[in-house]
Computed example of a mutant assay.
Amino acid sequence: MGGVVLLAGLAAGTHVTVTTADAMCDDASPSLPQAGRPEPVSAGLCEHFPDMAVPPDMLAGAERGLIAIQAALRMRGTPYSWGGGNASGPTFGIEHGVHIHGFDCSGLAEYAWANAGARIGGHTSTQWNAGTRIPRDQIRPGDLIFFARDPANPATIHHVGIAIDTKRMVHAPSTGSTVRIDTWAGDPYREREFIGAVRPTG
């Protein structure tokens, strides 16, 4: 299975080459672009995260998630804006985000997955129901990671991040911050509020 190349067709009609399986993040044999072909979506992710906590064989079929996470990673440094962001990119928010051009957590998730051709909505309640629930040990790049004030009650979900692997996510944390990478696994606050992961299917 090593080095299998998939061609991901997106809703917009574009195509992205993705290298999967054993060659995905193998530093000894990196995936290199060939003349006339786009660079594999996985290449930049593996270069920046050589310690990815996702077995390479779990990445087979993950091309949409890889597109989504790379879209989110390109937004690092964008200001947090309450109510900001949509499928097209950062926007001015509402209420205390009205003068800030950026993303809130769900706006970033919507934008990331729109790049992968999925409509998941712009609110955490919609996004929680936009795909398949994924066991924690099977989280892979692009999956949505949700946090709730009461992990037994989805109605209390208040935050979403986009998984880099089983330990880290890119997210828009709160007013005064920017889109950034954080390690959520092992963090007492995040562990206490973790309610589950969803892989969008829209």
Rank of each mutant, 00 (worst) to 15 (best):
72 A>C: 08
183 T>I: 11
106 S>H: 12
181 I>M: 10
55 P>A: 03
3 G>H: 09
180 R>T: 12
140 R>P: 00
38 P>G: 13
137 D>K: 08
158 H>F: 12
114 A>K: 04
195 I>S: 03
64 R>A: 14
173 P>S: 02
99 H>Q: 08
136 R>P: 00
124 T>Q: 04
199 R>A: 08
163 A>I: 01
31 S>L: 11
111 Y>H: 03
36 G>L: 07
196 G>D: 11
71 A>I: 09
16 V>Q: 14
110 E>F: 09
157 I>T: 03
72 A>F: 07
152 A>W: 00
168 R>N: 01
82 W>P: 07
104 D>Q: 06
88 S>H: 09
24 M>Y: 14
192 R>G: 09
195 I>C: 03
86 N>R: 03
155 A>Y: 01
133 R>T: 01
12 A>D: 15
97 G>N: 02
29 S>I: 12
68 A>D: 01
11 A>K: 08
91 T>M: 03
110 E>H: 12
94 I>K: 15
48 H>T: 15
35 A>P: 08
188 P>C: 05
8 A>D: 08
186 G>Q: 01
20 T>H: 08
47 E>T: 15
92 F>V: 07
22 D>H: 05
102 G>Y: 05
20 T>V: 15
143 D>W: 08
115 N>F: 07
78 T>K: 07
51 D>P: 10
66 L>A: 07
37 R>I: 11
60 A>C: 00
189 Y>D: 10
162 I>F: 11
7 L>N: 09
101 H>F: 13
24 M>R: 04
117 G>L: 02
190 R>K: 11
142 G>A: 07
170 V>E: 04
109 A>W: 10
33 P>V: 09
179 V>A: 03
151 P>G: 01
24 M>H: 03
153 N>L: 03
53 A>F: 04
38 P>V: 04
106 S>R: 12
5 V>D: 05
137 D>C: 08
151 P>W: 06
195 I>F: 02
33 P>S: 10
88 S>N: 13
121 G>Q: 00
89 G>D: 02
136 R>V: 01
39 E>R: 10
167 K>Y: 00
182 D>T: 15
66 L>V: 12
64 R>G: 04
83 G>M: 13
159 H>L: 01
50 P>G: 15
28 A>K: 09
109 A>G: 08
91 T>L: 02
